[in-house]
């Protein structure tokens, strides 16, 4: 955690501590004022994405998805529903597949974020990308980065034991074009290669 963030925590915690003293002896229904009357201004966060550092000045409300798309210029991660219901925004944080739309960017300081732009090394495609291409595991392509990030994680998790298992563990990624059978075939193939 950067010195910046630590200082903010200490300030907040101190304010909270004062509040705590005030609380003692009070009835439960009276609660003290929040520590900051004014909402927080923009804060500095350094995102570590695909091995590169992105120092960003962000509103604390910003989701990781919006920080990637609107500020870091990484538009490969898609916004499908912005409410955690479609999986198009799937990225890896510290190696686990998660939803960037439900993640505050400000909570990502110090974490290793991988997006579709960083899944493959250089010009070589990741085996899951290659398999999606050959099995036509997509049509419009909009859910595809999320599907591929999810599929790559699924293989690492070991949830590739059968087609039925792949289907269940890919059910957090909606494909409205209906490429599911091809997606399953692609992941099955990539898992055999890996």
């Amino acid at each position: 955690m950067s010195p910046n963030v630590t200082r903010r925590v200490v300030l907040a915690a101190t304010a909270g501590g004062l509040v705590l003293h005030e609380r003692i002896g009070r009835a439960d229904d009276t609660t003290p004022a929040p520590p900051s009357a004014l909402p927080q201004k923009a804060i500095d966060v350094e995102l570590r994405v695909n091995g590169s550092r992105f120092p960003l000045n962000i509103d604390p409300r910003t989701s990781l998805l919006d920080a990637l798309r609107e500020q870091a210029g990484l538009t490969g991660t898609k916004k499908g529903c912005d409410r955690g219901a479609c999986g198009a925004c799937t990225v890896h944080i510290d190696g686990r597949r998660v939803l960037s739309c439900l993640t505050l960017a400000a909570r990502c300081q110090g974490k290793a974020i991988t997006t579709i732009e960083g899944l493959n090394a250089g010009e070589d495609l990741h085996p899951v990308q290659t398999a999606f291409l050959h099995h036509d595991g997509f049509q419009c392509g909009y859910c595809t980065p999320g599907q591929i990030m999810s599929g790559a994680a699924l293989i690492k998790e070991g949830h590739d034991g059968s087609d039925a298992e792949i289907r269940e563990w890919m059910s957090g990624n909606i494909c409205r074009c209906g490429a599911y059978p091809n997606i399953v075939a692609a992941i099955r193939d990539a898992s055999r290669e890996g």
Partner: peptide, 17 residues
């Protein structure tokens, strides 16, 4: 305001606001 405490006691204290 986003508070990011590193200790449970701090979190509880802030959360009491």
């Amino acid at each position: 305001h986003l508070a990011q405490p590193t200790m449970l006691l701090d979190a509880l204290a802030i959360g009491n606001a």
